[in-house]
Computed example of a mutant assay.
Amino acid sequence: MHAAPAPVLLDSTPADFSPWVPLVESVAAATGDVPALLALAVEAGRTWPLPGEGRTAVLWELLASVAATDVAAARVLEPHLDAVAILAQAAHAAEPGHPFPDGSSDAAWGVFAAEAPGARLEAHSAGAGTTLSGSKPWCSLAAALDCSVVTAHTDDGGRAAFAVNLRHPGVACEEPEWIARGLQEIPSGTVHFDQVPASPLGGTGWYHSRPGFAWGGIGVAACWLGGAVGVARDFRNGLLAGAEAGREPDQVALAALGEVDRTLSAALQYLARTAAGIDAGTLGSAGNHSAWSEAQRVRGTVAAAVERVLSLVASNRGPGPLAFDGPYAKRMADLALYVRQHHGARDDAQLGRLALKGDCPW
């Protein structure tokens, strides 16, 4: 059984966070067991806060704490919680006479919104309702899930979100050739849909234009940052163990630990401030400063912090722990792959285009 590390806190006190500790400890015990982690995700979806409803910081503390325990576990829980939030947001956006699906409290959900060349999923509306046909790439754990929020191209030339039952006979999940050394438990492959009934969520354009799209993107960044906290704790614990064995850290190691500390502290403070802005309804409210541009700033800042922590810790700890310390090597590989959901300079280019139009706080 893995020991759960201390929680990653933004503005909660340890006492405030204590009611959530048992589930985080359960995540530690379930590391590597995807069915058990999915069951915990379903449980979390019933009780954890939703973004934008007053306790966004607590939600991000929970996600970060799970990732500090095991990065892959966060990669299991976060999509289910995002789907729960999307369904709740769709409920608020639903028009009379246009029902949305009530996500079963026992179903494990995913969110499939990626696009790729050669894969296209289309939604067709008819008298009997909407069906999905085509292919969707990068569908993590699709074969293990019950349902998913899926984006598809619509008859009017836009894109919309839909809720689908992944157990429908028209759904076929490819067995992905997943050779990654990171996130080995989380294979992502293509799913094929053949006239699969789907329930529309919010209409064309709603999925990407809602504030919750930005909030969900920052939730992923909270997972990245939690993983980096776990790496930093490995580094500090290694230095402490060396000191106990008579090998005091030199100035280079101490300088690296100091940079790790200020890098993570700055990113955690940024997340805390952003969560407060979301709950106060002020995120993106200043002039032309949009919620999505702020999400891109947060994600880019956190991704850069994660990359720096990975580099500092790897270069200072050397090859030994990567070769012989299983949990540390897994954490490093998992986090290096997970943070690649940020597209680096391409995401910065998108932010630059927004800044050029005046969508910036400066």
Rank of each mutant, 00 (worst) to 15 (best):
A4L: 09
L10R: 13
F17K: 05
W20A: 07
P22H: 01
V24T: 15
V27K: 07
V27T: 13
A36P: 15
L38P: 00
A39C: 14
A41T: 11
V42R: 06
P49C: 03
E53T: 06
S65P: 12
A68V: 07
T69F: 01
T69E: 00
A73W: 06
A74W: 09
A74V: 09
H80G: 01
V84W: 06
A85P: 09
I86T: 15
A90N: 08
A94L: 07
A94S: 11
A94M: 04
E95H: 07
P96R: 04
D102M: 04
G103S: 01
S105R: 15
G110C: 03
F112Q: 00
G118T: 08
R120Y: 08
H124T: 10
G127N: 13
T130E: 15
G134P: 01
K136Y: 04
W138V: 11
C139G: 07
L141D: 04
V149W: 11
T151Y: 05
A152F: 02
D155V: 11
A160R: 00
A161E: 05
N165W: 00
G170D: 03
W178V: 02
R181D: 08
E185A: 01
H192R: 15
F193Y: 14
V196N: 07
V196Q: 14
A198T: 05
S199P: 06
P200K: 11
L201W: 07
W206R: 13
H208P: 03
R210H: 09
A222G: 02
G227A: 09
V229Y: 05
R233F: 06
R233V: 11
F235K: 03
N237S: 04
A241D: 09
A241G: 09
E244G: 07
A245M: 06
A245Q: 10
E248S: 08
V252Y: 06
L254E: 09
A256K: 02
L257D: 07
D261F: 06
L268Y: 00
L283K: 02
A295E: 14
Q296M: 10
Q296I: 06
T301D: 11
V302A: 08
V302G: 13
L310Q: 15
S315H: 05
G318E: 05
P319E: 06
A323C: 08
G326Y: 12
P327E: 07
K330C: 10
R331G: 13
R331L: 14
A333T: 08
D334A: 12
Q341G: 15
H342T: 10
H343M: 07
R346S: 12
D348R: 15
D348C: 08
A349E: 14
Q350W: 13
L354T: 03
D359Y: 03
W362Q: 13
